[in-house]
Design a binder for these strands. Structure first.
Length: 110
DNA sequence: AATGTGACGGACC
DNA sequence: TGGTCCGCCACAT
């Protein structure tokens, strides 16, 4: 960390935030980007979750899109993510969608 | 240095 | 309601 001793880069903040998502709750890309201080940095969040090295030790399965659905295509992680979430108590409707009003993690309103 | 890529999101039509 | 386009960011080539 030559840039700053406290590693407060966008990526670091995003990863830190994701680590704080409690089991049974989920967060959206847009929400994470916003909490990390970059409302328009959604694509950066996508990159982090897409990079296997970056998502190491992160509860990546608790990150979904703003529509309340898993973004991973079936046969490429979708099943695993859904299984992990259901194991934590997150429920899916007939359209594999999660009710954000009930499961979206809202910091400060824990 | 420029271009391509990626598990998005919001505006538009 | 749903498909398409554009904008954002970070990293690899």
């Amino acid at each position: 960390m030559s840039q700053n001793t406290f590693s407060s880069t966008f990526a670091e903040r995003v990863k830190q935030f994701i680590k704080t998502i409690p089991a049974g709750k989920v967060a959206t890309y847009g929400q994470i980007a916003m909490m990390a201080g970059n409302p328009g940095g959604v694509r950066g969040v996508v990159w982090i979750l897409h990079s296997s090295s970056q998502k190491a030790n992160l509860p990546w399965h608790r990150v979904i899109n703003g529509k309340g659905k898993i973004s991973l295509p079936q046969g490429h992680g979708f099943e695993e993510q859904k299984t992990r979430l259901e194991a934590e108590g997150v429920q899916f409707d007939e359209e594999d969608r999660i009710d954000l009003d009930r499961f979206l993690w809202q910091p400060g309103n824990q």
